[in-house]
Design a protein around this nucleic acid. Structure first.
Length: 495
DNA sequence: CGACGGGACGC
DNA sequence: CGACGGGACGC
């Protein structure tokens, strides 16, 4: 129920929307001004009864960033913002589906972070890593009772929501911080195991349906905010251009839907997978995908850059696939739109759709010297991408996680800049990428390919190049550190 | 005292 | 400098 696209978009990033109790007669402009002191106010909504239009005495305020909301909450809770109103109560808004959260632990969700950590981490290590963001109430590392081993995650509780928010936004992204759920009761834990939530969480993370929409460094840079504005203009232009070409002028809304009823497609699928380049936010992707009628769901995992969307029928989905695949955003990168599990024969639709509408793209066929390793046929075009110093091949779909691994690569980089998302965007371009990941709290990671030739092409192209301003190393991985005997066999089979 | 709307206009 | 992920807490 909490998986509606609206709730995901509305409350992203986590804890950025505030619920204010202020009494009747709230002045929207007074709220904009007061909350604007702490950051960018995206929306102020004075709630009124839908029928009677009666003021309900509560206001929602959406801030751009988690930390801005936290600071505004700290500063304005218990204060007045103009002479006509009493004191405000300011809390983080609950999701629509969760309903009122009046009862208990309203501050729990603003102070404590859940973080992934290396198995070697102690509480002192955790504290050392996170105290840079503010005063810590406590840190703990969760230990397996049986083995005594660190289970690979821990908790950090701050004294102030603002400090927790700063850590959430700015810590090394390999920690994958999330605001911790309040501890569950024993009965709730048992339910969780019975219904297998852990498995579901894991697979949805891969496909972007997870709720781990942590902020990344890329999303906060002024440069990328500039890119978003550029995107808006580009978007408007592109679709405008298209509708102007239609016969009998200006189809709108239902007209387009009618036309789409007969849109040719051999597929009956209504879902699409979209791989986005770093820098795209869910709200922008939602606006884009919503320009094709029939959008029911758009859910981008802004950490992984993988989105799932659904349309109300297969014609709409097919139209969206055709028109949005190859759409250029940001400048020099393209969206990749596929049916789920669609094969990696790439290039048949390339250059169609929106792609041709933007002259001056830096896309060109490379010479034989650069493309010579290929052999796999297909498109050998390259494009400039924002985060890399050299042109890269066009994005290609990821293989499913159960695909056998033919070659692993060892990657060294600085994760604060070179996030998993940047790596995924870069490494998928050589084809048959299964997965790429960084280790928690470390500056290295691995990429897994289904074919050795693709892995070798990635080394050839990316080793020693700059990604997000950092020189990266890309080497063939050594076999995993083995225990002995069975253990080794198991690990080898799995990697 | 306490919970979920509506935008838009650019050809 | 750089070698091994995978997400929830004995309340």
């Amino acid at each position: 129920m909490s998986n509606t696209p609206q709730s995901r978009v509305r409350d992203y990033p986590t804890n950025s929307r505030l619920f204010v109790i202020c009494g009747k007669g709230a002045d929207e402009n007074a709220f904009k001004e007061a909350f604007g002191k702490y950051g960018t106010v995206e929306d102020v909504w004075v709630v009124k009864d839908r029928r009677t239009n009666e003021d309900k005495g509560v206001v929602y305020v959406k801030m751009e960033k988690t930390s801005e909301a936290a600071l505004a909450m700290e500063e304005l809770n218990g204060r007045k913002i103009d002479n006509h109103q009493g004191t405000l109560k300011v809390v983080v808004a609950s999701n629509k589906a969760e309903g009122s959260n009046r009862d208990s632990r309203e501050d729990e969700k603003t102070l404590r972070l859940f973080v992934l950590i290396p198995k070697t981490f102690t509480e002192a290590d955790l504290r050392k890593e996170f105290e840079q963001f503010g005063d810590i109430e406590f840190c703990n590392v969760v230990i397996d009772r049986n083995t005594g081993d660190n289970k690979g995650f821990g908790y950090v509780k701050y004294k102030r929501p603002y400090h927790a928010a700063l850590a959430f936004e700015s810590c090394n992204p390999t920690f994958k911080p999330k605001f911790a759920d309040p501890p569950k009761s024993k009965s709730e834990r048992e339910n969780r195991e019975m219904y297998g939530d852990q498995r579901r969480d894991r697979s949805s993370d891969r496909y972007g349906g997870g709720s781990n929409l942590g902020a990344s460094m890329m999303d906060r840079s002024p440069r990328n905010r500039g890119m978003k504005r550029g995107f808006d203009e580009e978007l408007g232009y592109g679709f405008m251009h298209e509708s102007n070409q239609r016969p009998s002028g200006g189809p709108r809304g239902g007209d387009i839907m009618d036309m789409l009823q007969s849109y040719p497609t051999a597929s009956h699928q209504t879902r699409l997978q979209i791989i986005t380049a770093p820098g795209l936010s869910n709200s922008y992707l939602a606006k884009l995908t919503n320009l094709v009628p029939g959008l029911e769901y758009c859910d981008l995992n802004e950490v992984t850059g993988v989105a799932h969307v659904r349309y109300s029928n297969s014609q709409c989905a097919a139209y969206a696939r055709d028109k949005l695949d190859g759409f250029e955003y940001p400048i020099g990168s393209r969206l990749m739109v596929r049916y789920p599990e669609e094969g990696s024969d790439y290039g048949s639709s390339r250059g169609g759709g929106m792609a041709g509408m933007f002259p001056g793209n830096d896309r060109y066929a490379i010479d034989d010297r650069m493309s010579g390793l290929g052999g796999g046929g297909g498109d050998d075009s390259r494009e400039r991408v924002q985060y890399c110093n050299i042109p890269l091949p066009l994005p290609q779909p990821l293989r499913t996680e159960d695909t056998p691994v033919a070659q692993r690569l060892f990657i060294v980089c600085q994760p604060a800049a070179v996030t998993e998302r940047v790596l995924r965007d870069a490494f998928c371009r050589f084809g048959n990428l299964i997965d790429v990941y960084l280790l928690a709290g470390r500056n290295y990671g691995y990429a897994k390919y289904a074919k050795k030739e693709n892995a070798m092409r990635a080394i050839q192209n990316l080793h020693g190049q700059n990604l997000a301003g950092q020189r990266v190393k890309v080497l063939e991985a050594e076999p995993p550190k083995s225990g002995e005997g069975d253990d080794f066999i198991n690990k080898k089979a799995r990697y």
